[in-house]
Design a protein around this nucleic acid. Sequence first.
DNA 1: GAGAGGAATGTTATAACATAACCCTTCCCT
DNA 2: AGGGAAGGGTTATGTTATAACATTCCTCTC
Lengths: 158, 158
Amino acid sequence: MTFPSPSHDHDHCIAAALALAERECHRRGARLTELRRRVLALVWDSHCPIGAYALLDRLGHDGRAAAPPTVYRALEFLLDQGLIHRVPSRNGYIGCPRPDHPHAGRILLCQRCGRASELDAPDLDAAIAAATAAQGFHAHRLSLEIEGLCPACHAAGP
Amino acid sequence: MTFPSPSHDHDHCIAAALALAERECHRRGARLTELRRRVLALVWDSHCPIGAYALLDRLGHDGRAAAPPTVYRALEFLLDQGLIHRVPSRNGYIGCPRPDHPHAGRILLCQRCGRASELDAPDLDAAIAAATAAQGFHAHRLSLEIEGLCPACHAAGP
DNA sequence: GAGAGGAATGTTATAACATAACCCTTCCCT
DNA sequence: AGGGAAGGGTTATGTTATAACATTCCTCTC
């Protein structure tokens, strides 16, 4: 996995994510309704975390305005299905490129361009599990968020 | 460091935290005012993350009610000084037992009793740095939150 | 295809969390 | 004493999230 560059083919990201979502939901018997698909597409509109109320605004563009519970229910479904992750520090949501592999939210967040990606670190689980267990703690859920500069922004200088 | 047990001497936690805060602020030339000390003491009232509005309520007990900016400004100061940490998943705040050692927020959170503690994992930084660098990402800030069962709650059975 | 039951969504209102903007006081320094 | 910065009060508002209830729509069974 690699951090999304400014120049990548994003249409491909969107298409792949929607297709994968479709397939996964079908496999699990979950219903990816029109509303949920639209919200997922809006989340995938960029690699930047997007807030619930920004999603609401854009949903409203087609016809009448939607109310908060509409988008929050769709987000809840997408989170449950692992199709998106929440980015706590931003109160925002980003698409998950690998909903077929259950995994915790481990987010890389560029403080310059605002894009987010996932940290690919199988070794990390072991290290965290060891440190956690050493304190007698039994971990169930984990959320890791790392803020810094993505390759492109770092290359662009200070 | 160990997860706070239900039976520990919490008065000692509070006294130690306040004394250390006093010392650190003096050393740095930061002003631990009466208001800030009261907020810090309220945060240390338990090991459970406490929200800004709960703090407000308790501040209000002595005399008139306080307004949100009052407590948020005190929290900002305490966060800047590393005297407390924010617990993102709870929109809450907990006291930091080691403000003299600058460190990232790495929180253990018991889903049963609600108490929080800090993960003590020096090795983790290296593992995270390695995984992060492998993706060409340059990390500046990190936030880790682990939810699960603390030793006491796990021992108490399901 | 009629009807029952449940899932999904609409609607209204409000809770919970956080900050902007402005003003006044206090404290410290010279 | 006077200037200036830091702290804190006050009012208003922005932002994020959920409760509670009504309605629509889908699916399954007969």
